[in-house]
Amino acid sequence: MKKALITISIAIVVIGIVFYGINQKERQIVQQNLITAIEKSRVGNELVTIDFKKITGFSWDKVYVFTPYTPEEEINQQLGFNWSKANLIEYYDSFNLLVFVKENKVVQYVKFPRTNGKFIVESKNEFAPDEKVEFNQLY
Rank of each mutant, 00 (worst) to 15 (best):
L47C: 03
K105D: 06
F112M: 02
K40D: 11
V13A: 13
I120Q: 11
T49H: 06
M1N: 11
Y139K: 12
E126Y: 01
V63R: 04
L97Q: 07
E46F: 00
I75R: 03
L97E: 02
N96I: 01
E46W: 00
F81G: 12
D51K: 13
A128K: 15
I6A: 08
F95V: 02
N45G: 03
I38C: 01
V48N: 00
Q78L: 15
A11W: 05
G21S: 14
F58A: 03
L97T: 00
I29K: 11
V14N: 08
I38T: 04
I120T: 07
T67F: 07
Y109R: 10
I120M: 12
A11R: 06
E122D: 14
E122T: 10
E73P: 02
F58R: 05
L97M: 10
F112W: 10
N104E: 15
N136A: 00
Q137R: 14
S59F: 03
T70N: 08
Q24S: 12
L47Y: 14
F66C: 06
K102A: 05
G117D: 01
R27E: 15
S84N: 12
E131K: 14
E26S: 14
V110Y: 12
G44R: 04
T36R: 14
I35R: 13
Q137P: 01
I17R: 08
K25F: 13
K111C: 06
R42N: 12
A128H: 09
E26R: 15
L79R: 13
E73N: 12
N96A: 13
F135Y: 15
I8G: 02
P71N: 13
V101L: 01
N45T: 04
N116K: 11
V101Q: 03
D130I: 11
F19Y: 14
E72H: 11
T36W: 10
V110I: 15
L34P: 09
Q137D: 04
D93N: 09
